[in-house]
């Protein structure tokens, strides 16, 4: 059951990630610098998250936060920020037709890093490798 829940959540995440560029593109048609668009989008999510945190009294959970957990979360946030900045920088100086397909290979990096860093919990079998490769090739061909 939990496996099905995880799979459903990742498919729904894909739907959400797919819907967002449709609205972002409408905004970018005005000629606005994408950095501003990304900041507005991020600020909106941050505001909602803070409201959720306060309404659901999630801030009480801060007491249980460990240093290690906090460090990994900040590192993840920094990695995300590096990805965002390098993506916009690459788009500004390069061709979209080259930049976008290259950035879409990120699941391959996840697979390698997960294999190296989380051997105890990540099972990388033939299904995972072939499935991930097919998705990456398929997405690169589609965009």
């Amino acid at each position: 059951m939990s496996r099905l829940r995880g799979q459903t959540e990742s498919v729904l995440a894909s739907v959400c990630f797919g819907l967002a560029p449709i609205f972002a593109k409408k905004g970018l048609l005005s000629g606005l610098n994408p950095l501003y668009g990304a900041t507005i989008a991020n600020a909106t999510a941050l505001l909602f998250m803070i409201l959720f945190f306060l309404a659901a009294r999630q801030h009480k959970g801060w007491a249980s936060v460990t240093k290690q957990g906090l460090m990994f979360a900040v590192l993840a946030g920094l990695c995300n920020s590096v990805a965002l900045v390098s993506f916009y920088w690459a788009m500004a100086i390069g061709k979209v037709a080259i930049v976008v397909p290259i950035t879409c290979i990120y699941p391959l990096f996840t697979m390698v890093v997960a294999y190296l860093a989380m051997k105890e919990s990540e099972v990388i079998d033939a299904f995972t490798v072939i499935g991930t490769l097919l998705i990456v090739i398929g997405v690169v061909l589609t965009i």
Binding site: S2, G6, C16, I22, A45, Y106, T110, T128, I135
Partner: peptide, 28 residues
């Protein structure tokens, strides 16, 4: 999207979740 994506890590492998959620261009 991010909440669903991160939440799925609790139930399936991060590789599986990342690969599935990376199919978003198909939705577009």
């Amino acid at each position: 999207g991010r909440a669903l994506y991160y939440s799925s890590f609790r139930f399936i492998s991060v590789t599986q979740s990342t690969a599935i959620s990376s199919t978003y261009p198909i939705i577009s």
